[in-house]
Write a protein that binds this DNA or RNA. Structure first.
Lengths: 156, 156
DNA sequence: ATTTTTGCAAATCATTTGCATATAT
DNA sequence: ATATATGCAAATGATTTGCAAAAAT
């Protein structure tokens, strides 16, 4: 497991070759995402934009997030409370361990999970086409800092 | 993997011993849930109630779902499109394979997954407190019936 | 020049809340 | 009798949409 990368230039770079236009508003959203440590909601970015990028429209933020998600530059996650959030991620990794202390997302190597899913299919005849795994807990440094785990968590 | 049970009496029974009151509106919601095959949204139940249980209030449906979820009689799932839905489930199982053809939920034995999560913790020092796994695909009978998988699914 | 993207305001959709009334224990 | 739960309508919050103007190719 490695810390998820800072996005930003990467987002901009990826946009270049994508056939979508590299616009100023999209740059602004990419920059805000790059500046974030952990997960964030659309509302977070909209709030930030109010100060740092006035004139950036609400709808534009949603549209940029949707675009980035479709390019797998950002992934949508559902926090335990049901809130929709996003994390920046490498294009090839698709699972995250999210720290409930600091909100940071860590990429998870999912080889073991792939095997588990394959076994499910083998045993039952269910043909798995997609899955979503979200892991919540405390990263090593939040544990060291004595941050408490979320209340109400069932043990994994 | 076994097909998730029909809830209903089970919901009512569980309510009995829970310290919460067994009311007519809660019965109505339990009955509607029992009559469902697959996943459903709050809006689905509210629509159904319009015909079958007039006078049942919108807020009451949300409150009943929240209560059932807190008792682990129903689980909230996030469909691939981000929609919030629910499935009836046994109190001890906590993962589902959801068929994108018929919407039914199947309980998944998660022993292998538990091992995978434990391995993640061991390797990285991340302390896992909660996780969410949602598996989407086609059940055996939908495959047999020739139902096509969802477009846009990344292979698991 | 042409197509894509934007900002805005309004529309839509999902969910929650306040509160007086009704109901289960 | 008393605490809990309900229905309603209004409030809130999140996300989407229509469309004319602006920006990128």
């Amino acid at each position: 497991m490695t810390a998820a990368p800072q996005a930003g230039n990467e987002l901009v770079d990826a946009l270049e070759g994508s056939g979508y236009r590299l616009t100023e508003p999209r740059r602004a959203v990419a920059e805000m995402i790059a500046g974030r440590q952990g997960h964030f909601t659309a509302a977070d970015l909209i709030d930030e934009a109010r100060g740092r990028h006035p004139g950036l429209g609400r709808a534009t933020v949603f549209r940029a997030l949707e675009l980035f998600a479709s390019l797998n530059l950002v992934e949508r996650v559902d926090l335990p409370a049901g809130e929709h959030a996003y994390v920046a991620c490498e294009r090839t990794h698709h699972h995250h361990a999210i720290c409930t202390g600091c909100g940071r997302a860590f990429d998870v190597d999912d080889q073991g999970l792939v095997d588990v899913l394959a076994a499910i299919g083998r045993r039952s005849g269910f043909r798995v086409t997609t899955h979503r795994l979200e892991i919540f807990g405390l990263c090593a440094s939040c544990q060291a800092a004595g941050v408490q785990p979320m209340p109400g968590s069932r043990p994994a």
